[in-house]
Design a protein around this nucleic acid. Structure first.
Lengths: 340, 340
DNA sequence: GACTGGCACTCGCTACAGTCGAGTGCCAGG
DNA sequence: CCTGGCACTCGACTGTAGCGAGTGCCAGTC
């Protein structure tokens, strides 16, 4: 069944009013606040249709209407335009991100910036190792039987692992190992390394074989197979705005979900094309988040994508504004990464 | 004014009951649940005195008594014995911490373990750089004018910074720089490095001077002066247990405080002797946390202390249990660090 | 056929009165 | 110094009533 333009305008008005007032909106208030050009009674008829179609609902019989998840979906897809950022916001983004000394620093600043601009919970995934290439591998002797393996990725990520060698390895051998490993692996995408590492173990001189074997095990198991993803989070205090009306009274499930890296990664770390993704309420696969919406997108230097970032908040959120902010921040971060 | 033994027993009973039931406790319930050997009326008289002295109070005129912050303080100082951990808890700690591959991993596991055992918010400070020594400094060329400086500390921490060189530096010079820097700084406490770095810049051959100068700036400014502290957090969902009765209805101030690293560091990152510290309610210097208590202690390999860890929860918490758990976990972590 | 004004109806919210009961403070007596 | 008894307080809960925002429906108008 088709909805004519006016019904769509009514839906849009309901969403906008509800988002800003947080109260069910009635037909009378609607015609007063928006130039719909019709009477409340007409609006009521339209509302009845919208309700029948599942776009809005009444919390109680004698209350105004509230958008459903489906209503928000329609609003996002067809009724809203991405708001351009205000100059103040643009300046804030630049000011915030300039002067980051370090990948950690970039991620940290980004996540706080996002939380501050959107007034929601912000989530930023560190550049994924799976999509990084090896820039350099460093072996630092800790003792004769211990090495610290430091991997520097082209995305700026640095990971380290302690390697317990099967026996003592002299300093010269460590130098050889370092050279060999770098010759073979530097520049390779992390996902392409397994066969290379395999080859390394086989080609290596006999006396280095045992050390190289344990080294390769650590490398493959802790860096490649379970590719270590990291996540930064900020703005959880924003969940308490709207005083428990959002999230039907309990922050518990939300806070629990936010503690699970796996969940967050699923939310914002998707591969997908570079479009912005919006998940509304029960579209979400996690029960804990059925009262929340997520706006996320990928970021990376140039047009490649190395990680995701986004915000999470009540379904009653300012979608156009948040979408715009998330996109803008992702773009700036991408530029920042491209410079390094 | 002195409190006799029975009054103290009454206070202890009130604290214990209130902590477990979360409801104001009355005189009748008290004599039923504890073997005090006296009648409710007597208990009432004792309560009146305790209230006058500020150890307990009545939420409403016709309600039972609730401990005040001062009452908890007395309880913690004089009325409670540290609970020995159950074997199950000991096993949990060992099981949880065995198999950590990495300092990050240790800290991560520790903070989750603490949150799980105490059912409170857990906070763990990474080993402080200020109390670490330099184990090794690595310089990785990124381009001819860029280096990645990687510092590995004896505590296992690894920090990296991008260094923009004033001009191109050939590979051999980087090797020289690396050697010089390590000869001078390896083994030094980070806090002792400034004069050493100063000397380095002066001693270095003229052609390396500019590079060494920028290098030393980065080193001193980002690693020594503003000593980068890091913090891990877990268990925020535990704040919602006790359904908003704790924290007088709003998690907001607590969540805000937990987002401020500075605040957390002040809470758990104190120098102090190796005793366990308990901050109760308004003893806390931050207004946001006046409804919360913190139990914290230092940890480190052997008897030295390299960082702090602890838990944060409502003033109505199981102090003896949490103190025991915090201590035990700190001890295990210390042992773990000593092994590396 | 679409829109509008009018009207009866629903139902959550608030205020108010009344009851109940847990808990207290006090006092006289052991 | 402790205890049992007793009057009192006051929050929690219940039921009732009135208010008002908002609705659905219908007959009338353009």
């Amino acid at each position: 069944m088709g909805l004519d333009d006016r019904k769509l305008a009514v839906l849009r008005a309901i969403v906008e009013d509800y988002v800003s007032t947080q109260e069910p909106v009635g037909s009378k208030a609607l015609v007063e606040r928006h130039q719909l050009g019709v009477s409340p009674a007409t609006v009521r008829n339209d509302m009845a249709v919208l309700e029948e179609e599942g776009y809005i609902r009444q919390p109680h019989t004698s209350a105004g209407r509230v958008p459903t998840d489906r209503g928000y979906r329609l609003f996002v897809d067809r009724l809203s335009r991405v708001k351009p950022l205000s100059p103040a916001e643009r300046r804030a983004i630049e000011r915030f991100l300039v002067g980051a000394v370090d990948l950690d620093d970039v991620v940290h600043r980004t996540v706080r910036l996002l939380a501050q601009l959107t007034r929601q919970v912000a989530v930023v995934q560190y550049p994924s190792l799976a999509r990084s290439s090896v820039r350099h591998l460093e072996l630092v002797p800790i003792s004769t039987t211990r090495l610290m393996l430091v991997m520097i990725a082209d995305t700026g990520r640095v990971e380290q692992r302690l390697v317990e060698l099967p026996g003592p390895v002299p300093a010269d051998d460590v130098t050889d190992l370092r050279r060999l490993v770098n010759e073979k692996l530097a520049g390779a995408r992390l996902s392409d390394t397994p066969p290379l590492v395999q080859a390394l173990v086989e080609e290596v001189p006999a006396e280095l074989r045992p050390a190289m074997t344990t080294l390769s095990t650590v490398l493959l198991e802790t860096l490649v197979e379970r590719h270590e993803e990291r996540i930064a989070l900020a703005g959880t205090a924003n969940l308490t705005r709207g005083g428990l009306l959002d999230f039907q009274g309990s922050l518990r499930p939300i806070l629990e979900a936010l503690e699970e890296e796996v969940v967050l990664l699923k939310l914002i770390g998707e591969t997908e094309p570079s479009t912005t993704r919006v998940l509304i309420g029960d579209e979400n696969e996690f029960d804990n988040l059925r009262a929340a919406s997520v706006v996320s997108t990928g970021y990376g230097p140039g047009s490649t994508i190395v990680g995701g970032l986004g915000v999470l908040g009540p379904t009653r959120m300012d979608y156009p504004g948040n979408i715009a902010t998330v996109r803008a921040v992702a773009r700036y971060v991408g530029e920042l990464l491209a410079q390094n």
